[in-house]
Design a protein around this nucleic acid. Sequence first.
RNA 1: GGCUCGUUGGUCAAGAGGUUAAGACACCAGCCUCUCACGCUGGUAUCGCGGGUUCGAUUCCCGCACGAGUCACCA
Length: 465
Amino acid sequence: MEIRVRYAPSPTGYMHVGNLRSALYNYLVAKSLGGKFILRIEDTDQKRKVDGAEKIIFDTLEQTGLVCDEGPGIGGNFGPYVQSERKEIYNKHALELIGKGDAYYCFCAKSEENKCDCKNLDPKLVENYISSDKNYVIRQKMPECGISSFDDVVFGHIEIENDQLEDQILIKSDGMPTYNFANVIDDHLMRISHVIRGCEYLSATPKYNLLYKSFGWEIPIYVHLPLIMGKNPDGSVTKLSKRAGAVSFVDLVNEGYLPEAIINYISFLGWNPGSTQEIFSLDELEKVFSIDNIRKSPAIFDYEKLAWVNEHHIKMKSDEEFADILRKYVDFETNLIKLAKILKPRVSKLSQIENMIDFFRQRPDVDKNLIMNKKNKLDEKIAKEILSNSIEVLEKVDRWENSVLFENLSSLSTQMNIKKNAIMWVIRVSASGKEVTPGGATEVLEILGKEESIIRLKNVLNKLV
RNA sequence: GGCUCGUUGGUCAAGAGGUUAAGACACCAGCCUCUCACGCUGGUAUCGCGGGUUCGAUUCCCGCACGAGUCACCA
């Protein structure tokens, strides 16, 4: 059997992590089984359609590396891949179903659907209604009793009583198919072998199977995925929503998570590699992914863990790559490579960068108490001494490099018989105005440059008495 | 409410009828160290409840509780 899977999002304007997870698992199943990954746009709900939404879908797939083999703008032998362009196909099939007696016209208004009895309408009357342009939908006729069952790769054997199934609408009154119908038709016509989607579709699956049966089509392999839940600020757990934090791919990226970290993290939402390895590139995921390791219980989206994963992906970047990312966050003239070196091990979300480095851009107004209030027995007098001696030493430095600066200040510490820590503390805080900085005293000085460093140290010196 | 699914430390999460019940995040302590972080070492803490089956269940079965999904001219 040829493995063909599909990712079928609706263009609603943003990429929820649940959708992205579906896309990822489809992609991984395709890659791990040597199959094709197909993109299909499900835009049958004209009201929900949002301009530019398709672009978001394409962009997200591109940024995450989820490359499609077939789809809109890509091509393939089973197009068109946009459902609104396939309207005739659905109508033809709906008519076929009516002919078989497995579907019927329904003329009820939306409000009276409950007591609707169009199933048993006189065929003549139906013809009359249609020729008189009365509004209608086409409904699927469900069996009234019995049990439908199917096997899901993740959830196992599922049985649902047929009286739970409603005569669902196949074609809406605007002539468009519902998801429930278009989905089945397209999956068959596009030769989809595995239907991989969120488990919110689990209880509707028997309806789809009935459709396959009416047409005499082979039922695909079902892989339903556990839900993704979110932890709300109050500690409760519900379906992941904005209450819990960012939920769309772009939001996550804007918060400072790398696309590859997002992919890595969401791959673990409902799946595990069967080993203790947690950091994976997409390539690696393709190699280890297996449907067998998908679990049934809902997964909870944990931002702390995501940040940890992100931290690792940041560390895996080269200084050059990270410097390149930094460009977006650094709006002043500086040596990005040097900045990258000191920032890389300290950043878990890119959004933290701004606050960490603002003192490089702007000369700080240093609170002199910051310098004193430390365990290194620093009083104002000693601090002043340290500063003036340091300035004297630093002014003589020609090669303004971390190692040279460190050496010079270290020997000053021996000369003055003061702990190195104390000297470094005074210098670092004076130069940055912060207790906590990325990088040590001399690393900070190196980035600031000689001139600026000395100005800053002198400024603080002048405050001391 | 009907139907369907789930429930392992504070959180995520492996796991098997008999285990010292992995690992990770977070937290705490120590080490490292020009601050913080990184890194390293160690630590605290878990099988929802009640019945059964069994020599033995956290693991299998049945109830219950709790959580979730679904019951749209949304997907």
